[in-house]
Amino acid sequence: MNNSDIKKLSVFRKTLHRYPELSGEEKETAKRVLEFFEPLKPDMVFKGLGGNGLAFIFEGKEEGPVSLFRCELDALPIKEENDIKHLSKIPSKSHVCGHDGHMAIISGLGMELSQNRPQKGKIILLFQPAEETGEGAEAIIRDPKFKEIQPDYAFALHNLPGFESHQIVIKKGAFAAASIGMIILFKGRNSHSAHPEAGNSPAEAMAKTIVALEKLPDAMKKFTLVTVIHAKLGEVAFGTTPGEATVMATLRAHENETRDLLVLYAEKLCTQISKEYGLEVAFEYTEVFAATHNDPEAWELGNQAAKNLDLKTKHIRIPFRWSEDFGLFSSYTKTLLFGLGSGKNQPQLHEPNFDFPDELIPTGVKMFKEIMQQLHY
């Protein structure tokens, strides 16, 4: 990859950064990616995959494995606060997670493949929609078109602030947590606020639930975490005693089974509290993320790639607490998600002043290219 290619990718990344789109809305982003790939002449293109997703396939002449390299199309509902020329032009939306940089890396891989097709097997470059909401991977996998490109391996990276720039962060087994958004709905009975005894306010039950939920992990043997993210009691009506309450929380664990057990305990807890106060209770769930599990064989390919490139490698022992929608692919194929250090002093992901460092683009391309080299050449 020469300086001209790197500059082209940097310009493309900045364009994507200026025009962020939220999960499920990535039509223009997909269109820009499609335009970028037109001159690269992939052998097959799948459009509208799982929504706005795209897959570009480069085929070898000989039989061989099918490997998939994934990046994300979507941005976040966060107002960017930065002093950069390529600042987001879309109000209160931004690429402060670095998905613009991940797209540039996979686009760079496309440039490489257009010049040097695989000798054997197939390589799929996947631009996945709706990663941030945990809906995109499932939509991709359920799409009938995905059956035509069922991969033997799937690879992805995520830039990681707080780690040395260009450092590869890697781990066998569990790498990122499973999580789920839990919505608890309490229903009591309204009354006049002058006669609260005539109604049944869920206020105390709501308060008890908020405290008790976050203490649930104390009773678990394995790592779990409950974070209450929102609560609402009644309506703003000073003449009314509230009759309904909502509590929302994110539940996390390193394994899918532990997360599911935590959900079961949380439901039992809330049901017990609702009975204590004579309330009805119901549960809803959203933003479900599977645990990301790195297969030993896929891990070996990534680890060897870092060694071949003489990149500094950090072998972590404890999985990350955050979740990645890529985790769902772990249930269907051999996966590897690794981290690419984006600088110790870099703002953290999802902070309003985060901007993906362009100097990481060649490193990401080289890592994926080195993995491809072991499988397809």
Results as ranks from 00 to 15, higher is better:
L185P: 00
V45K: 02
E63N: 14
L49G: 01
D260K: 15
V96K: 00
G24M: 07
L279S: 01
L126A: 09
F12L: 07
E287Q: 13
H195S: 14
I84Y: 14
L301S: 02
L34S: 07
L279Y: 06
G110A: 12
D43P: 02
S114L: 10
R117D: 12
F163N: 00
M44V: 10
A198K: 15
P202W: 02
K31P: 03
I183A: 01
N159F: 04
K307R: 13
F368A: 06
A203W: 00
K79A: 13
G48P: 03
D143E: 12
E297F: 14
I105H: 01
A237R: 10
I168E: 00
E276A: 15
C97H: 02
T29D: 06
S114F: 07
G341A: 08
D295K: 05
Q304I: 12
V96L: 07
N294F: 09
N3Y: 12
V281D: 04
F46P: 00
H99L: 06
N353C: 04
N345P: 01
E132Q: 12
Q128D: 14
V11N: 14
A253S: 12
E28S: 10
L87I: 10
F146Q: 01
P362K: 07
L360A: 03
Q119P: 01
R13D: 08
S10N: 08
A139L: 06
T29M: 07
L328W: 08
T333L: 10
A219Q: 13
G199H: 09
A154E: 01
E135G: 08
F289L: 05
Y285K: 11
P296H: 13
Y153W: 12
S201C: 07
N82V: 14
R317D: 14
M103K: 00
G188P: 05
E80S: 05
L261E: 05
G48D: 14
P42V: 06
Q128A: 13
F186A: 01
T246I: 04
F127W: 11
G162Y: 05
E63W: 09
P242K: 01
G199C: 12
L279N: 02
L76Q: 03
E72R: 03
A75N: 07
Y332L: 09
P319I: 08
P161L: 08
T15L: 13
K172Q: 12
K232A: 06
N200C: 11
S331W: 13
G327A: 07
K172T: 09
H95S: 06
L87F: 10
E164A: 06
E132C: 09
I78C: 08
N353W: 03
L213M: 08
G181A: 06
T335K: 01
S94K: 00
A290S: 11
Y265D: 04
N345W: 09
H102L: 03
P347L: 05
G48R: 08
V247R: 00
Q115A: 14
